[in-house]
């Protein structure tokens, strides 16, 4: 079955999800995996789609013309075989909270440190909080550690980085518990 990645972003208003879902329903597309959220004043949707018959991009794109005319940006691409499958990441899962006075480079320095140690970011949210006079930057980063590393190793790395860039960083394990 051909899979597609669809992203939609535009000024938030009621009806973006229903407009999108209606088009997908009429096309006969399955929504295999999706995440949508409001960022600033924009609503952003990211979806992995599949269709039992349609395998050309043009058909999918064509169906969204009307939505684009309503001011939404729509982007579709076809996935290579296997691109829809979530990789099995067996390592420990950690949530990294990063926050401090807003300054350039917070996301870069944290992400660089993680990638240098082969730590995989699987979910990332950042936002500007606090007052206009005293903005604070908040970054919540969910990561999967390589198997030869545990949360104490990550804590040590982040403690060092915390003093280097003067932001607060805490690490806690969030590996799911099966009950």
């Amino acid at each position: 079955m051909q899979h597609f990645a669809l992203t939609i972003i535009g000024r938030d208003r009621p009806g973006i999800v229903s407009g999108t879902a209606e088009i997908l329903y009429h096309l006969g597309c399955n929504i295999a995996d999706s995440s949508s959220t409001i960022l600033g004043g924009q609503f952003a949707m990211i979806l992995i789609l599949s269709h039992p018959e349609i395998d050309d991009l043009a058909t999918i794109r064509q169906a969204f013309t009307e939505l684009e005319e309503q001011g939404l940006s729509v982007f579709v691409r076809a996935l290579k075989p296997g691109g829809e499958k979530r990789p099995q990441l067996p390592g420990e899962q950690c949530m990294i909270s990063v926050y401090g006075s807003d300054k350039p480079g917070i996301v870069y320095r944290v992400a660089k440190k993680l990638s240098d140690h082969n730590i995989n970011i699987v979910d990332l949210n950042t936002t500007l909080a606090g007052s206009e006079q005293r903005p604070i930057y908040v970054m919540m980063c969910e990561s999967v550690l390589p198997q030869d590393m545990d949360s104490d190793d990550l804590k040590a790395l982040m403690d060092k980085l915390s003093s280097e860039i003067s932001v607060d960083i805490t690490v806690r394990t969030i590996t799911p518990v099966e009950l």
């Binding site: 899962q93 969030i174 590996t175 799911p176 518990v177 099966e178 009950l179």
Partner: peptide, 12 residues
């Protein structure tokens, strides 16, 4: 806590 359940596989 992030929970999972044997009766609901592959979701936490």
């Amino acid at each position: 806590m992030r929970e999972g359940c044997m009766s609901v596989p592959d979701y936490t």
